[in-house]
């Protein structure tokens, strides 16, 4: 299953109720597996074929490699209205232009910085990218690891939008799954007094997600099926 991204995505949608599938191309990072664009394109095509939900196509964070690979990935999904990213203040031109040409949506990224978030949105919109096709991403801090910063920045962004700042009025995405599971509290198997590890991890992720949802975040990238169930349950009760 793990070797077949298409089947994996299908399982996430059909069994675990994913509304979107996020392909995070960590493997293309030169310091990780350094996979090439052809591989990323192949994975994208497989997943596109396997599921009908919208895709998020997320680069590895290495500007040079992303600029090389993501245009090919974008082209492979042309017209599929994927959410593609991320673009930053210092690296936005090529991916913004390509996302525009291929009819995708764009993730603009800022390092928990409200001013830079606005700046990237202005830069992208200055290139003619429609504001209503932008989703913002502030680097996510998990429970115990900076969640208060993530919470307050998302809250500030939402309040700015509600008071009429159109450059801040986009949906926001958070990367809760991978950030939560980086916490030792979520992962450590043998930790007397911390409770059962099999509950603790999903709870750590669900708590982080629920907290950020309340700050006004719209899209949450998640990992553990039990955390997804808990968060969906919360969403259905509150909204």
């Amino acid at each position: 299953m793990l070797d077949s991204p298409g089947d994996w995505a299908k399982k996430c949608v059909e069994q675990f109720g994913a509304d979107l599938i996020c392909l995070k191309f960590d493997g293309i990072h030169p310091d990780k597996v350094d996979k090439d664009a052809a591989h990323a394109v192949k994975v994208t095509q497989e997943v596109l074929k396997a599921v009908g939900v919208p895709l998020i196509l997320w680069g590895c964070g290495n500007d040079e490699k992303d600029n090389q690979v993501m245009p090919r990935v974008s082209g492979a999904a042309k017209g599929e209205k994927c959410l593609i990213g991320t673009v930053t203040e210092n690296n936005y031109k090529s991916l913004t232009a390509i996302a525009l040409a291929d009819g995708h949506y764009l993730i603009t990224e800022a390092p928990i910085d409200i001013n830079i978030a606005k700046q990237v949105n202005i830069l992208a919109s200055d290139m003619g990218f429609p504001l209503e096709r932008i989703v913002t991403f502030q680097s996510t801090g998990a429970l115990g690891y900076g969640i208060e910063y993530a919470y307050s920045i998302q809250e500030r962004q939402r309040l700015a939008a509600l008071t009429g700042d159109k450059m801040m009025a986009m949906p926001a995405i958070c990367d809760v799954g991978s950030e939560s599971w980086r916490a030792k509290e979520a992962r450590l198997a043998n930790a007397p007094g911390w409770g059962d590890a099999s509950d603790r991890g999903p709870m750590w992720e669900a708590t982080t997600a629920v907290c950020l949802l309340q700050a006004g975040v719209d899209i949450i990238r998640m990992r553990h099926p039990r955390a997804v169930t808990a968060v969906k349950n919360f969403i259905n009760q509150v909204w």
Partner: peptide, 12 residues
Amino acid sequence: NKQIYSDSFLKV
């Protein structure tokens, strides 16, 4: 503080 500062705030 009615608009958030950004380097391109004049483009609002």
